[in-house]
């Protein structure tokens, strides 16, 4: 079992008011399995992934009956251990490469730095490793990109560089939080295909967070649909068309379609009963 989360709760307190953003989320991810977490903004999907890496701010109150990654109990780890884990055995790809790359360092240096943090080796070796990694993420001209600064490359290229950086320590799990929402539709497909391929060839597990339900179903084995801090439904990606929960159906239904034109798009009617706490 790569990831095992049971009854995860995350609450924030502000002005004396307590708000529970995640309310009893549980899921399991086997090695080499791909799980998509889908939901609207504010559904708690991103902070669930962040909680797994203990990346939430200190004021977040996180509790869970069980939160294990690769056999390690995340809740009892020291900060030092966690730092080894992050970017080590678990890679984290964030939404927008513009903000997650260091603007004043070359791509090559940034990848080399990631490599040296988790591997033993000198500068020269690190540079060679960086070049090799850039080749693995299918960058056409890796030598040029190696010495380029983030502003000199496109968004898609930047996201490839981010992925290269995350691959450096040979992680067993890749967490991708909306890895393509800052990118074009055509680049989006390319990047997701790349992630898909890398996850397969390197036997990694994948946690893909997205708001795009049909898209996720193409690249995952199973999909967990979140709404207001709870999992509404978990289903195999291939069974999305047979989704039972009205929220999942509603999300699929409100997308405009090229092949099936409609004058009015159905609007999601939110049933208050979805908010009721499921896990006791």
């Amino acid at each position: 079992m790569l990831v095992d989360i049971e009854n995860l709760r995350i609450a924030f307190e502000s002005n004396g008011k307590r708000f529970e953003a995640v309310r009893g989320v549980s899921f399991k991810l086997e090695a080499r399995q791909k799980l998509g977490i889908v939901g609207e903004s504010g559904s708690g999907k991103s902070i669930t992934a962040r909680a797994l890496m203990r990346l939430l701010p200190p004021q977040a109150q996180v509790t869970a009956d069980r939160m294990r990654f690769d056999g390690i109990d995340i809740q009892s780890q020291s900060e030092r251990e966690m730092r080894k884990l992050r970017g080590g055995r678990a890679g984290f790809i964030l939404q927008d490469p513009k903000y997650s790359l260091n603007p004043v360092k070359t791509i090559g240096n940034q990848i080399a730095e990631a490599w040296r943090t988790h591997n033993k080796g000198g500068k020269k070796e690190a540079r060679e490793a960086a070049l090799d990694l850039l080749e693995q993420v299918m960058i056409r001209d890796p030598k040029r990109v190696l010495d380029a600064y983030p502003h000199e490359i496109s968004g898609g290229m930047g996201q490839r560089a981010m992925i290269a950086m995350m691959l450096a320590p040979n992680p067993t799990l890749l967490i991708a939080d909306e890895p393509t929402s800052a990118l074009d539709a055509s680049v989006e497909a390319e990047i997701l295909r790349l992630i898909d391929e890398l996850v397969d060839t390197r036997n990694m597990g994948l946690l893909l967070i997205s708001h795009d339900l049909p898209l996720v179903s193409h690249f995952c084995d199973k999909v967990s649909v979140m709404y207001m801090g709870q999992v509404m439904e978990e289903l195999a990606a291939g069974e999305l068309a047979q989704a039972k929960h009205p929220y999942t159906q509603g999300l699929l239904n409100c997308l405009p379609s090229l092949d099936h034109p409609r004058t009015d798009l159905p609007v999601l009617t939110r049933d208050p009963s979805w908010l009721e706490e499921k896990a006791q």
């Binding site: 055509s186 379609s257 090229l258």
Partner: peptide, 14 residues
Amino acid sequence: RELVELSRSLETPV
């Protein structure tokens, strides 16, 4: 055609 193809392939769930 490329754009149409892409849009079609991504909009339908598997």
